[in-house]
């Protein structure tokens, strides 16, 4: 199998000065490209034995007592570019609490911690590439970029596909959030359609009456194709 090269025009560039931290953290030289090798086309495999019972339930997985906030299910599928489901994919998430505060020693935002909310979860996709989490909707929070910049509500996602070359970290946003269009991090993505694909719609079909709302978030990783014609020697 051969990994499909990334279409970089749908990905944010390294240097995006509206997001100030990129200015000193972006390579100035062009990336060196080449055909994918075994190093990129293989990757770690994670089994269900690493998962704890409540690893995908962020409402309960910190202390066992329920967290405060808007109860939501986040669900979706992990697919490749050929719309094939990726089963066995490790999906890891982390997020702020309902007030926009992270449980991280470096976060000193004045909104309080929730004693019953840790803010991270993980799961492994099923045969059809599906996954789900139960969590509280994270709050927006301010960050020192522009004079008055606020991150929209978001959940960070980390994905392992079948190979290390598919490795991806991104963020899920919520339908209708007016902060999305104003966010310098969102706007590092040059293509509006690519931004729209990171916005999860409200999904009433998966909401549980008198319990929780639901949002759907599908993720697409790089595809791989069968190696059919590959007769050229390296370097030609």
């Amino acid at each position: 199998m051969t990994l499909i090269p990334r279409t970089r025009s749908f990905q944010p560039p390294a240097h995006a000065p509206g997001y100030k931290s990129t200015v000193a953290r972006s390579p100035s030289r062009a990336l060196i490209s080449g055909p994918a090798t075994a190093t990129e086309q293989t990757g770690p495999v994670f089994g269900h034995e690493v998962l704890g019972e409540h690893d995908n339930n962020l409402i309960l997985n910190y202390t066992g007592q329920p967290a405060i906030g808007e109860r939501i299910i986040v669900h979706g599928r992990v697919l490749d570019e050929f719309a094939r489901p990726i089963s066995g994919a490790l999906v890891e998430v982390w997020q702020a609490n309902a007030g926009g505060r992270y449980r991280h020693k470096k976060d000193n935002y004045l909104a309080p911690l929730d004693p019953n909310f840790g803010g991270c979860g993980r799961t492994i996709t099923g045969e059809d590439g599906s996954y789900e989490f139960l969590t509280v909707r994270p709050g927006a929070y301010p960050w020192p970029n522009g004079g008055n910049d606020w991150r929209p509500m978001h959940i960070h996602f980390s994905l392992f596909g079948a190979s290390f070359g598919q490795r991806l970290i991104s963020q899920m946003y919520f339908e209708g959030d007016p902060l999305i269009a104003r966010c310098p991090i969102v706007n590092t993505i040059p293509d509006q359609a690519a931004i729209d694909r990171l916005i999860a719609p409200l999904d009433m079909t998966r909401a549980l009456p008198l319990d929780c709302l639901a949002y759907k978030f599908d993720i697409v990783l790089r595809g791989s194709r069968q190696t059919m014609f590959e007769n050229r020697m390296e370097g030609l």
């Binding site: 990334r6 982390w94 980390s158 963020q171 293509d191 690519a194 694909r197 697409v220």
Partner: peptide
């Protein structure tokens, strides 16, 4: 009939809470 890879976003300053608790 192909999809497009989801756009990446920065891991942000608190990436460790999710990946290295």
């Amino acid at each position: 009939e192909t999809l497009i890879e989801s756009a990446s976003q920065t891991a942000g300053p608190y990436v460790h809470i999710g990946l290295m608790p």
